[in-house]
């Protein structure tokens, strides 16, 4: 079975911040918990665009500040319930 959207998203976030994907909860905050800086954010956007073949404008990205929100955003972009 192929990797789920949720697992792929968590893998990218975990790689970016050097944490274990298991540690990522829906409420994990990108800035407060993972200490996301400006360059992390741009890198993460580039990683998600490449992984899911989507375009992510920065003003859309900034509305998603938790792991759960990021996953929901990607699902919505891909038209997946």
């Amino acid at each position: 079975m192929s990797e789920s959207i949720e697992a792929r998203a968590k893998r990218l976030i975990a790689e970016q911040f050097g944490v274990d994907p298991e540690e990522l909860k829906p409420e994990t905050h990108l800035v407060k918990d993972l200490k996301m800086e400006s360059l992390d954010k741009i890198e993460l956007i580039a990683a998600f665009e490449e992984e899911f073949d989507i375009e992510i404008p920065e003003e859309e990205a900034e509305r998603n500040v938790t792991v759960g929100q990021v996953i929901e955003y990607v699902k919505a972009k891909l038209g997946v319930k």
Partner: peptide, 16 residues
């Protein structure tokens, strides 16, 4: 830090 990011994400990152 920037070099690592560019090496990881390539031209897509540079262009952002």
């Amino acid at each position: 830090r920037l070099k690592r990011s560019v090496e990881r994400r390539g031209r897509r990152l540079l262009e952002k």
